[in-house]
Design a protein around this nucleic acid. Structure first.
Lengths: 139, 139
DNA sequence: TACAACAGTGCAACAATGTTGCAAAATAAT
DNA sequence: ATTATTTTGCAACATTGTTGCACTGTTGTA
């Protein structure tokens, strides 16, 4: 019998280690995007900082998580949908960053509109990031 | 007689100093977005690294330049259009980052479409960043 | 133009973030 | 169970960004 976490790692041809299981579980638990620093705090001294960097890198390469562009200098990561495979992401949904609480949401049901580019420009990826107030912070 | 550069600084209530004139001139010359590192290279040892940080910060606050979100860890800055004033940016155009040459373009004539957000989410700002191949790099 | 008030700069020291090489440990394959 | 392979932790380092303070340049006023 395999847990969902172990399954996911195996499906992406990754050996199953403590740090990978733990870090993947953080993403599954939180549901929202996490920055390197978040994971470092959550895991305390359990893993080396370097291991976290390398694990996140590996997850991105294997298509388990994707990065979200932000205007401040912090890279955030979020779980990919199932269609993402190694070397090829399909994350065409909108991201929302709350200015109040800092939470980053993947709005899976809001898709990025096609934009018309000037002559000679070829789009490979399109990212749409909205910032404002989320449904928790506004009342 | 005033140069355009001096005028711009004065219009934004900034005292006119060598570093500000020089850094603003870099933006006017290049036409594209610049990262902190670009400016550091262009200016050599002329200014302290700290001065460049503070100048860019000031320019953003005063509405002379705006930041562009990127998925890698580098903040890029580009000149604002004239409608940007202190504390209130109006940069609703699409940004394009070339994967080949790294150049970042402001596509002033491509505007960001309105997106429909889930209940409870209020948008303050919307950034759309496209990456791919620019008209210089493709042939 | 000269002077006072103020704003901006450079330096130093520091904090945070990210990278690399290598030996030890854990995982996978046989 | 043993070997081959992968991953981890450590140490050292590079890069990037921040803060306080003394000094310098800029601005406004006479």
């Amino acid at each position: 019998m395999h847990s969902k976490i172990t399954d996911t790692l195996k499906k992406h041809q990754l050996s199953v280690t403590d740090s990978r299981k733990k870090i993947l579980s953080f993403f599954l638990q939180s549901g929202n995007a996490l920055a390197h620093a978040d994971i470092e705090h959550k895991s305390g001294t359990e893993f080396d900082r370097v291991t976290i960097y390398r694990t996140l890198q590996t997850f991105v390469e294997k298509g388990i998580i994707h990065t979200i562009p932000t205007a401040d200098n912090s890279i955030r990561y979020a779980l990919c949908k199932d269609e993402c495979v190694e070397g090829h992401h399909h994350d065409d949904h909108v991201h929302f960053i709350c200015d109040e609480c800092g939470t980053t949401y993947c709005l899976d049901h809001v898709s990025v509109p096609k934009v018309k580019l000037p002559k000679g420009f070829k789009a490979a990826q399109t990212d749409l990031v909205v910032s404002g107030t989320c449904n928790n912070c506004e009342k």
